[in-house]
Amino acid sequence: MDDGEFVRTIYDASYRRLVGQLVVATGSLAEAEDAVQEAFARALNHARTFRNTDNPEAWLRVVAMNVARSRWSRVKRWTGLMPRLAGTTSYDDDSTPDRIALLEALKRLPAAQREAIVLHHLADLQVREIAAQLGVPSGTVKARLSRGRAALAALLGEEHSDISSQEVHDG
């Protein structure tokens, strides 16, 4: 199997799962798909390096999140200049009000909190692993998780019942 075929194999196995995680990280299916495809494109261009990674899916997730984060920064700058254009998100026709509310709530969270939520609840990483991946102290990860979940619950008008620090797995 050459390097390109290796990337394609990972693409077939991991694309959907990564898009699912990035949707929560970005609050947008379109942004998630674009970020994940961008990550695979970079994997193709660095196929030899990519093939030597211990965990290709984790590598792709990091790259995709970095892509989404940097685009988010650019969009933020742009919307700062053009405030009237901000917030004009369109949704699929079959999006339910509940789904739209969840996506809107996710978009209002700081990106760092969204990332922590994705890595902990969807990628099943422990706090220590998230801290290592993001290069921040474990305490920071715990705070982001705690604050992110609290803010999400508040935005959705839910009772926040899963906030206790005991539920954050330190690993």
Partner: peptide, 27 residues
Amino acid sequence: MADRLTELAHDAEEAAVPDFDAVVTRA
């Protein structure tokens, strides 16, 4: 909360997978 996030992710995973050629073109 966690259930809603998981459901959102699973629904997104149902979206069509673009052809790998699109990634090759982008690269």
